[in-house]
Design a protein around this nucleic acid. Structure first.
Length: 661
DNA sequence: AAGGAGGGTTTTTTT
DNA sequence: AACCCTCCTT
């Protein structure tokens, strides 16, 4: 009993079925470019049309940027004059919302700091130092990988010992405990904690779970193929009473296995939710026929996938090019020359072009070529604004103001710029604080009395504390003036001199100093946008959306340009012309995946290539270099196995040749 | 405690 | 080649 799609919706039969099937579990297997975002937004509208209150509909997206865009689209469809709005959020933002109300029940402060990757690394480093593990045995990065692996399936430090497989895990389990108590003592959580603590909260306080179960009557998840174990469990709990769950995804685009994404969730949806309806969207409106064929042919080499065949709706000829260059420099020059020609002589818009690559070291050469040709470009993701040292310093100052317990941030800035509080003194004070169970600040006087630090140092620490208190007052009482506070703070600590000292070259100095202004601008932008600005909200926002663009580039000029991004960041996007570069063994598939020697590792790389190809609407250029310089040494580069795969037709089950060219 | 020199390490992808 | 850590000198 499926009605025909209304004419003005422009939806096809399958899409319409997915839109109108609103009760019970539904799996939408949506290939690339089949209009799944449209389906999700129309589905929200349909639910509301059927009388569901907008704010009882929860849609989960993969990035905050995607959430913003979907919210926009939905409002465009529904009209902005709704009394309430559908909730569109990432898993992490949703968990923050859940935790904010009840995290005190788990012994955390009401206002908790969210540690980003850099903070995590500092905390990991300290945990390792505390138990005196030699650097070679376990590095901070390895530790974080282990911890994250555990956390993503909800394993606590206590449970970790049961999952130890080798000596390294043994060490990691010890360090995990330290790391976790360090975070707890700092009143801080990391990204994985957001999910894990939410589950703990639901387990220990069923009333909280019930409240959230009652809050949403319908839940939809986009990019379901990238859902990890913990995320799955949370959602499963949330929808348990009504099972009104719609998940949308494409197993061929699962590219986050390394982050715990379990392809089994999308493959086994019907087992987990018996009675689930499956709708397949296979009509591709994005790419030309040749591009679809190429993508299909490549991805058919993967085992363990839902069989589906994308059907192209667009025709096109000669839209695919393969190029091999002598080295990576020539590759960059060649691609950019090509682009320059298109832009200058064929009036192709810069926004219509994208260069996609596997690793973040690749764009450098392309960037300098683009600059040389005076073409506008935007580097998406990569070393983000918030990863720069100066930004991290200033953010640490703000975090210390907002979260007095945040030890990691305090240690970062206590002597930056230098103010006569050396490592030795800090260490002594910390030891005292730990021994007597008090805060860092309260341990200063006892340390002085015990003769562990000099009177001079003690007075320096006191002075800094006074300064912090002054800023803190302002942050609390004049939340609208945060930008001015930061400006004054920077001046008071004379951060400019610090930068000039650190960087000798004037060009470096200028660009680093500009970063300060960008920080101030970011806060200004926030305070003018927020209804009720607060330092904690600003910090929360920046740590959750840090890598999304939209920061530092509020200048519309910067927003248009040739897009440079990794294949991972390109997920969900599309461009009329795509350059997929560096298709070589060791790069795509990445060396790490090759070394691993597992089939699933290579398959994920293949899906990554598949994602890259299917970003292209009309034109696709795939390039590789014959040699590549790595670690200062030139090496032969072998063309990626995927090239051969995508160009060799493979046999159908019936024994027919499926495609030809 | 601060600053500089030298040596070793590093690179997959990100909420 | 960039960054971080450690050690050395002041």
């Amino acid at each position: 009993m499926i009605s025909a799609p209304p004419r003005d919706s422009g939806l096809n039969q399958a899409q319409w079925q997915a839109v109108t099937c609103v009760d019970g579990p539904l799996l939408v297997l949506a290939g690339a470019g089949t209009g799944k975002t449209r389906v999700i937004t129309y589905r929200m509208a349909e639910l509301i049309r059927r009388g569901v209150a907008p704010d009882r509909i929860l849609s989960v997206t993969f990035t905050n940027k995607a959430a913003r865009e979907m919210q926009e689209r939905a409002l465009g469809l529904l009209g902005r004059r709704q009394r309430s709005r559908p909730v569109v959020s990432t898993f992490h933002s949703l968990c923050v919302r859940i935790l904010r109300a009840d995290i005190t029940r788990l012994g955390y402060p009401e206002r908790f700091a969210i540690y980003d990757r850099g903070d995590q690394e500092s905390a990991a480093r300290r945990a390792l130092r505390d138990i005196r593990i030699s650097d070679a045995a376990l590095r901070p990065g390895d530790l974080l990988a282990c911890i994250s692996r555990w956390k993503m399936v909800g394993i606590t430090p206590d449970q970790a010992r049961e999952f130890i497989e080798d000596d390294r895990d043994q060490l990691a389990a010890m360090a995990y405990r330290r790391y976790q108590s360090q975070l707890r003592a700092s009143g801080a959580v990391d990204f994985d904690d957001l999910l894990m603590l939410t589950e703990t909260l639901f387990d220990q306080h069923p009333d909280v779970l019930e409240r959230w179960q009652d809050t949403f009557s319908h839940v939809q998840i986009d990019e379901y193929q990238d859902t990890n174990e913990l995320q799955f469990r949370l959602i499963e709990q949330l929808v348990r009473p009504h099972r009104n769950l719609c998940v949308v995804g494409d197993d061929d685009q699962s590219i986050y296995g390394w982050r715990g994404a379990e392809i089994k969730h999308i493959l086994g949806f019907q087992q987990q939710f018996p009675g689930a309806v499956i709708v397949r969207l296979q009509e591709n409106y994005r790419c030309t026929e040749g591009i679809i064929q190429l993508a299909n042919q490549l991805v058919r080499h993967n085992l363990g996938r839902h069989e589906k065949r994308l059907v192209a709706h667009k025709e096109g000829v000669n839209e695919i090019n393969f190029r091999n260059y002598p080295d990576e420099q020539a590759e960059a020059e060649g691609v950019v020359r090509d682009i320059a020609y298109l832009v200058r002589h064929l009036s192709v818009k810069e926004d219509d072009l994208a260069i996609l690559f596997r690793t973040n070291e690749q764009p450098r050469l392309f960037e300098s070529e683009l600059r040389r040709q005076r073409l506008r470009y935007v580097l998406v993701g990569g070393q983000s604004f918030f990863d720069r040292r100066e930004v991290r310093d200033l953010m640490a100052y703000l975090k210390v103001l907002a979260f007095p317990d945040d030890e990691v941030s305090l240690l970062r800035i206590i002597n930056t710029p230098t103010r006569g509080i050396g490592d030795a003194a800090v260490e002594k004070i910390l030891q005292r604080a730990v021994k007597s169970g008090t805060s860092f600040w309260r341990a200063v006087e006892p340390a002085l009395v015990a003769g562990e630090i000099s009177a001079r140092t003690a007075s320096n620490v006191r002075g800094f504390f006074e300064q912090l208190q002054g800023w803190r007052e302002r942050a609390i009482h004049q939340p609208a003036q945060l930008a001015q506070l930061l400006t004054d703070l920077v001046k008071q600590i004379d951060y400019e001199s610090e930068i000039r000292k650190q960087y000798k070259e004037s060009q470096q100095q200028v660009s680093r100093l500009a970063v300060i202004d960008e920080c101030v601008t970011a806060i200004k932008e926030y305070t003018s946008r927020s209804l009720k600005p607060s330092l904690t909200e600003f910090l929360e926002e920046t740590s959750l959306t840090g890598r999304d663009d939209g920061f530092g580039d509020d200048d519309p000029l910067k927003k248009s340009g040739i897009r440079l991004m990794t294949l991972h960041s390109a997920k969900g996007l599309e461009f009329p012309r795509v350059y997929l570069v560096g298709l070589e063994e060791g790069l795509l598939p990445h060396q790490r995946a090759v070394d691993e020697g597992t089939l699933s590792g290579i398959e994920e790389e293949r899906r990554l290539a598949y994602v890259g190809i299917t970003r292209a609407r009309d034109y696709l250029t795939i390039t590789s270099a014959a040699t590549r310089t790595k670690w200062g040494k030139r090496r032969e580069s072998v063309p990626s196995r995927f090239l051969k795969e995508m160009l060799t037709p493979i046999e159908d089950e019936e024994g027919e040749v499926s495609t030809s060219h």
